[in-house]
Design a protein around this nucleic acid. Structure first.
Lengths: 243, 243
DNA sequence: GCAAAAGTGTTCAGTCTACACCCATGT
DNA sequence: ACATGGGTGTAGACTGAACACTTTTGC
């Protein structure tokens, strides 16, 4: 019997814990939405949003769709993570499944508006319970990818809104990497990258000097995707023998 | 109708062109084995080795198997590349296929022994004809991944044998990256990485001072795979709510 | 005025790069 | 002897971490 094909998505957003949100200076954390399984295997356990691939639907489309269905949102960033399909995956007794998993980043403003359906719940990424299938391992891998990618690319802004202060962007790095970042050096690095442009506006309100607001420079690709980049640049490198 | 699942592999080896092998100082190049398609779609065109996923067989196992079937070899390095599954992939008219593609590196000694079956042919990676499906794009992406990975990890030795001189290792870098590398600086970087240990043996025969032979230090992982590393470190980060 | 964060300047150490130079071998 | 690549040394450019310091707001 041929294995079933499914698409799942690890959806990350930066949120402040509701319970401690009243506390001043509450650091945001990484959260992700999970859905309850309503049947075996792993009936009643939390699992990543996902489902079978529909006809005439691309893999990334399926990821976007399940994301929209579970959260009502569209992601600022979406990337394929990995295809998991070992024959001994947990739950394979009930029918083998090959999962193509995506991971996504949601902006701050949208994250507030997330519809939390009956079977959906947001949980902190570093305090997850035992999930269905091998989903704990998948989330671990997605977290690892997020962390390494934040360091060498420019995706951090995908957790923020249209405009943001460098302080906010730095906080994203600090929360994701789990360590403090020098404000002075961070500012210079970001400015030197040219990925960000000042809007002229400032954000006031703190008990301190107002901060310049920046916007992401859309002319700059956040990640180097190589030949997978948008423009499909179909490349018959040369024209030679065809047997 | 559910999409079919297939596993294909981009297999790289460093070879000297047979026609110019007589010439002295012939630079090796990247080659890859392709198979002729014997039916529609793309009947008669070259394609990546691959096929459907068998029952009770992991994705990586399937990649290894097709690699063995087409070349008679086992790879020194094997990694998942990407899952291609857009609804508008070339050839989808004859039935939609989601391809999980792997890429592999073959050692120098093995590459000589490669069995070249009736329908198999090795072609130079930078002079490929029009391949079946979107396989040109896939090879481009695999090449890009190989190049970026050679720069920041220690996989280059996978194109060589058990022991090798630093000259040979440097040549791998030069061929893959397509540019000259300073011998002095390369030596220092490799030695500093500690990934390589001198065997005490030397390689004589050139009209020059004999070169020290090195062996790869197997205690060091060639690539940082993060949570996908061998030891499955099943990680229920904590034990919390299960609805 | 004072606390707090925004933003600037400077130093120091480590790394990368280019290139000069000596060493050991085959012919 | 001498050509050739193996191997070492080193000066300058560049980069990143650390941290002192000035600026501008809210209270």
């Amino acid at each position: 019997m041929a294995p079933t094909l499914a698409v799942s998505t690890v959806i990350f957003a930066l949120r402040t814990d509701e319970r401690s949100s009243a506390a001043i200076g509450a650091r945001p954390q990484l959260w992700l939405p999970l859905v309850v399984r309503l049947r075996d295997p792993f009936d009643g356990r939390w699992a990543l949003p996902g489902g079978p691939l529909r006809e005439d639907e691309g893999l990334a489309d399926a990821a976007s769709r399940t994301l929209l269905e579970t959260t009502g949102l569209r992601p600022n960033y979406l990337e394929q993570l990995y295809a998991f399909g070992d024959a001994d995956r947990p739950g394979a007794e009930h029918g083998r499944v090959v999962s193509v998993v995506y991971w996504a980043m949601i902006g701050a403003e949208e994250a507030h508006l997330a519809t939390t359906g009956q079977n959906v719940r947001w949980l902190a990424a570093d305090r997850l319970p035992n999930l269905a299938f091998d989903h704990n391992r998948i989330v671990e891998y997605a977290l690892w990818r997020l962390r390494t990618k934040v360091e060498y690319s420019r995706i951090a802004h995908a957790f923020l809104g249209e405009t943001f202060t460098l302080r906010e962007l730095r906080e994203v790095h600090e929360v994701v990497l789990g360590k403090a970042v020098d404000p002075a050096n961070f500012r210079r690095q970001v400015e030197a990258s040219g990925a960000v442009v000042p809007t002229g506006q400032v954000r006031t309100g703190g008990r301190h000097r107002p901060a310049q607001l920046y916007r992401y420079d859309t002319a700059i690709e956040p990640v180097d995707l190589g030949p997978l980049a948008p423009e499909p640049q179909m490349s018959p490198t040369s024209t030679e023998e065809t047997p």
